[in-house]
Design a protein around this nucleic acid. Structure first.
Lengths: 220, 220
DNA sequence: TGAAGTAAAATCGGATACAATCGCGGCAAC
DNA sequence: GTTGCCGCGATTGTATCCGATTTTACTTCA
């Protein structure tokens, strides 16, 4: 019998963390809002022990801030922190992509094109956020560097509220440059030109960062 | 009255994690060895709750591996993982150094030179490991990018056993190249040439990685 | 001799219970 | 009116306990 057939075999704390993470990424929990262990425990029908474990996990991912003897809050990056993450992405993601290109299947590349096409035409911001994320994460996923991949995914997670905010304020006219850059990147991938694809991705992230730097910063 | 006057104000789990981390870095706990919650709890005079918290912290730092319902072990990186970390360092540390150079005080730079000088002459491997680490971490420390700095420190932590192993097998003759590279890097820092210092550091890490790749890998 | 099965001991995950700490409101003093 | 202090409620941190799972050691049989 397969091991995971019945109920969820994973630790409760991990399951709770997973749920919370998804909620934060969807925007159900707003950055800066308070998290109380009791409420969460009740909400998940568990005791506070696994809840604390989940909070510690999310804290280390950067999604939650824990203050000893006080409480926990959903992380709220300021502008400097956001820029910092983008600078790290600028260095790491081209590496991941360059390593991934050789291992992407033709099916993967087809999916990339499809994601880019859907992103180009969707009018919905949430859809666009989701598609953009899937596109980027899929493009690097085949890199045989698991630590690098989890690091990159964490960066995407903690900056998600800022992409949402940015897209909500700039509207759709800020998207076409990204769409073109995606296309160029995918074309390089199709040619299996790992170096060029990495350069494209680096330029894409860099331009986004510079754009963010001069953008008005909405605090709340 | 100062807040931290009496006993340690921090959470027990954090204190335990700190102690364990230091022990792992010193080499008191060998990679691959088992960690039992009961023993640790007894050793620290605490219950298993904060111990579990500490283990979770160290797991997220990559120093410990937790297997649900089984036990915990000190992490043991294989060659591929070690190479992966070095490739990430190769991208991130030059960025940190470039951002740090402008903020290094003259005192900092003097300390860098002193550390390099002491590393050059010490016959003891443990001393060399410690000095090398301090030199590198100090050189980037003034970068106003806290997340990047903690990431870099974690990379140093999880690869520490491999530097130790490497130095123990190659002996002192493998050190002089590093010493020269350190010198060149510090000279660039003295000239406040951030770009050049970053390039030097990148080359230093890259050469070390290539050296490691072709080195015999001691499993245990 | 070695492999497989089994039972007991060791160890872990989670719930409950208690202790410690923080924040806030009210009250008094200046 | 402002400032400082005290006490209570709310919330977090840690210890203890119990069921569940794994590990280990012993037994048995091929």
């Amino acid at each position: 019998m397969t091991k995971g057939s019945g109920r969820d075999e994973r630790l409760l704390g991990v399951q709770i963390a997973e749920q919370l993470r998804q909620g934060i990424l969807r925007g159900d929990w707003k950055p800066g809002s308070r998290i109380q262990q009791d409420r969460l425990a009740e909400q998940f029908g568990a005791s506070r022990i696994p809840v604390r474990e989940a909070l510690r996990l999310l804290e280390n991912e950067g999604l939650v801030v824990l203050v000893p003897n006080s409480s926990a809050w959903i992380s709220k990056l300021d502008k400097a922190e956001c820029i910092e993450v983008y600078m790290m992405r600028e260095r790491l993601e081209p590496l991941a992509l360059a390593q991934s290109v050789a291992h992407l299947s033709d099916g993967d590349i087809g999916e990339l094109s499809a994601l880019a096409a859907r992103a180009r035409v969707t009018p919905d911001i949430e859809d666009y956020i989701q598609l953009d994320r899937e596109l980027h994460l899929l493009s690097v996923r085949r890199a045989p560097m698991p630590r690098l991949l989890t690091t990159i995914e964490r960066f995407w997670n903690i900056t998600q509220p800022y992409r949402r905010n940015y897209l909500a304020t700039t509207g759709a006219e800020g998207r076409w440059i990204s769409d073109v850059e995606h296309t160029l990147m995918i074309e390089a991938i199709k040619r299996r030109d790992a170096e060029e694809a990495g350069r494209m991705l680096g330029a894409h992230i860099r331009r986004t960062r510079l754009h963010l730097e001069q953008a008005a910063w909405v605090a709340e």
